[in-house]
């Protein structure tokens, strides 16, 4: 019944304690503090699941309604770029996990290296995303801003659509590609925003890690940030097949 560490830690022996400097006054033990912050991070990730949940719901509904438009829309995305981004992100998750391991085993230079690699891989992801976005802007595939249907009404004029073998769509269905791109930008944009925040925090952590933080036994910050980073990775693991790979055989 007792998942409260304070129970294990009776009041009797609270008289003399050597508190590590990073222990906050209202926790009885370091273990309790670590447990609490870790649990808080998980709860925060719950809110993130539900936040993206609204977007996934919208995606599933419109994909069912406008399947041809979603297929044609997905043909506008580049699998090499998307695939490369998946590689970068998965690898960055690995380097992050290794970073946590380095912190746990008190390897300072290893930690700095792992965090720096994660940082670079994350930046690489955003760089490729920028290339993809700018291509969409050039083609007027950004919803709202002079959205252009040309690639879908006349696929022969569009190399990507032509390569995928798209046939010209009826105007009615072609217009629904805008819904696809709305969701594409909302979902990847929201994901990229999380990446940017993550990279910011990574920069701060590299700075601290070089000064020797996190490798003295107090690793919760690195650990909790790792959870966040892996969560962002998981979102991408779903976004990649849902947005890029709807159907490549048609």
């Amino acid at each position: 019944m007792s998942d409260s560490p304070a129970i294990a830690h009776g009041a009797a022996d609270s008289a003399v304690h050597e508190h590590p400097p990073y222990q906050r006054h209202h926790f009885a033990t370091m273990a309790q503090q670590n447990d609490a912050t870790n649990f808080a991070m998980w709860l925060f990730l719950l809110t993130e699941i539900m936040f993206f949940g609204g977007l996934f719901t919208a995606y599933l509904i419109y994909r069912n309604w406008y399947y041809p438009a979603f297929v044609a829309g997905s043909h506008q995305l580049s699998i090499p770029l998307g695939g490369l981004n998946t590689l970068l992100l998965i690898t960055s998750s690995f380097t992050m996990a290794m970073g946590v391991w380095c912190a746990e085993t008190r390897r300072k230079s290893g930690l700095v290296l792992c965090l720096t690699l994660t940082f670079i891989l994350g930046l690489g992801f955003l760089g490729i995303k920028t290339i993809e976005y700018s291509e969409k802007i050039e083609k007027h595939h950004v919803p709202g801003f002079h959205y252009s249907l040309q690639s879908f009404l006349d696929p022969a004029s569009d190399p990507a659509a032509k390569a995928a073998g798209d046939k010209p769509m009826a105007l009615d269905m072609a217009r629904h590609t805008e819904v696809y791109f709305s969701l594409y930008f909302a979902m990847t944009g929201m994901h990229a925003l999380h990446m940017i925040i993550g990279i910011g925090i990574l920069g701060f952590m590299i700075f601290r890690a070089r000064a020797g933080a996190y490798t003295t036994g107090h690793v919760t910050f690195v650990e909790n940030f790792g959870l966040y980073w892996h969560f962002v990775d998981i979102i991408w693991i779903f976004l990649f097949p849902l947005l890029y790979l709807i159907s490549r055989h048609q």
Partner: peptide
């Protein structure tokens, strides 16, 4: 006293991480 101290910190070895990376790829 509760026996199940969940913070018996389990350190996952790099080997496991590498395997998972491979599986993901």
């Amino acid at each position: 006293m509760s026996e199940h101290q969940e913070h018996e910190h389990h350190i996952v070895s790099p080997k496991v991480y590498a395997t998972i990376l491979l599986a993901l790829l």
